[in-house]
């Protein structure tokens, strides 16, 4: 049985859409007066890239796939076996880290990040986790300070520091 919808083709279709959007936004780039007489202006390169993107994406969709190497069912089984749940948890923690970093402050937030991501990966030696995350982050922060790089304290602590 030949499968026509392979993963490469799906990516090809997605990339085709991306290239079209890219071309559309590339066309919106404002041009200044001195670009009018120019052969090659701020839009030219995006046009070139976008059009070649469309060609390559179409080629990827059309080119016959190798029936033995592109076994979609096999690929799907392999993908299903991966541990997606902890991965999503890890991604969520990274997202939260980015959102709360400036509010909680570098040292506190980073320690929390190390602690939580260890926990999500299945580590259960709680004391070791606390000690390690706090000490690693603090040592790192000390080194940063020694190099003269300024780390702003978190907004959370600002309130009671002023008092």
């Amino acid at each position: 049985m030949t499968v026509y919808i392979t993963y490469s083709r799906v990516i090809g279709v997605l990339f085709l859409c991306l290239s079209c959007c890219y071309l559309y936004f590339g066309h919106q780039i404002p041009l200044d007066f001195w670009s009018e007489g120019e052969v090659f202006n701020a839009r030219s390169m995006p046009y070139l890239i976008g059009i070649s993107g469309i060609f390559v994406a179409i080629a990827l969709i059309l080119v016959p796939t190798h029936p033995t190497t592109t076994n979609v069912h096999q690929q799907w089984r392999e993908l299903k076996q991966l541990s997606w749940l902890p991965t999503m948890g890890f991604a969520l923690i990274i997202a939260l880290y980015g959102l709360s970093l400036e509010y909680l402050g570098f040292i506190f937030c980073s320690s929390l990040f190390l602690f939580c991501s260890s926990a999500i990966l299945g580590e259960r030696r709680w004391l070791l986790m606390v000690v390690l995350s706090v000490s690693i982050v603090s040592a790192f922060a000390l080194m940063i300070g020694w190099l003269g790089i300024y780390l702003a304290p978190g907004d959370l602590w600002m309130g009671w520091l002023d008092v």
Binding site: I107, V130, V134, S135, S138, A139, L151, P153
Partner: peptide, 13 residues
């Protein structure tokens, strides 16, 4: 190290 870390935590703030 974690003791040092705690001191660092407070001194930084």
């Amino acid at each position: 190290p974690s003791l040092f870390a705690l001191i660092a935590l407070f001194s930084a703030d």
